[in-house]
Computed example of a mutant assay.
Amino acid sequence: MWRALNFERNSDKAQRIRRLALQRGGKLTEGYTPECETTHQTADRTMTQTFGHRVKIVADFGSSEVVVMVDGVKKNSYKNLSIPEFMQLQNEVEQMAAAL
């Protein structure tokens, strides 16, 4: 559990442990800033965070959808994420990008 909560493991079980911890009131470490480039497309009402050359998060503020893209292919899609859930996703995507 310690390894999951400290992001030393990224298995499905570790991701479930972190998600449950957030749902039960847990918080990410203060000051966490993802290693990514963030751009805002104000006319499209989207934000794109690029993690390296292959992985990105695209958040659509109009539809409240967040999409994870790998090599230009949609891998996951989420609706109505809370801020802690989005921060958790950023961390998981950052780790995924580092592993590729």
Score class of each variant (00 low, 15 high):
1 M>G: 14
1 M>W: 10
2 W>A: 12
2 W>Y: 11
4 A>T: 12
7 F>C: 12
7 F>R: 09
7 F>N: 08
9 R>I: 14
10 N>D: 08
11 S>L: 13
12 D>S: 13
12 D>C: 10
12 D>Y: 08
15 Q>A: 15
15 Q>T: 14
15 Q>M: 15
17 I>R: 06
17 I>C: 03
18 R>L: 11
18 R>K: 12
19 R>G: 06
21 A>C: 08
21 A>K: 03
21 A>Y: 04
24 R>K: 12
24 R>P: 02
27 K>S: 11
31 G>E: 13
32 Y>Q: 15
32 Y>A: 14
33 T>L: 15
33 T>Y: 13
35 E>K: 13
35 E>C: 13
35 E>S: 13
36 C>H: 04
36 C>G: 02
37 E>C: 09
37 E>T: 08
38 T>K: 11
39 T>H: 12
39 T>K: 14
39 T>S: 15
40 H>D: 07
40 H>N: 10
43 A>D: 13
43 A>V: 11
44 D>L: 15
45 R>Q: 15
45 R>N: 15
46 T>Y: 02
47 M>T: 15
48 T>E: 11
49 Q>A: 06
50 T>E: 11
50 T>P: 04
51 F>V: 04
52 G>D: 07
54 R>P: 00
57 I>P: 01
58 V>C: 03
58 V>F: 02
59 A>T: 02
59 A>F: 01
60 D>E: 08
60 D>Q: 06
60 D>H: 11
61 F>W: 06
61 F>E: 02
62 G>W: 04
62 G>S: 07
63 S>N: 06
64 S>M: 08
65 E>H: 00
66 V>L: 03
67 V>A: 00
67 V>M: 01
68 V>C: 01
69 M>W: 09
70 V>M: 00
70 V>D: 01
70 V>F: 02
72 G>T: 05
73 V>P: 01
75 K>G: 03
75 K>N: 05
76 N>K: 09
76 N>Q: 06
76 N>I: 01
77 S>M: 02
77 S>L: 04
77 S>G: 08
78 Y>H: 08
80 N>K: 07
81 L>K: 05
83 I>E: 06
84 P>S: 03
85 E>Y: 02
86 F>G: 07
86 F>I: 10
87 M>K: 12
88 Q>S: 00
89 L>V: 00
90 Q>I: 05
90 Q>N: 07
91 N>F: 01
91 N>D: 03
91 N>C: 04
92 E>F: 05
93 V>Q: 08
95 Q>E: 09
95 Q>C: 10
95 Q>K: 13
96 M>N: 01
97 A>K: 09
98 A>C: 07
99 A>R: 12
99 A>K: 11
100 L>N: 07
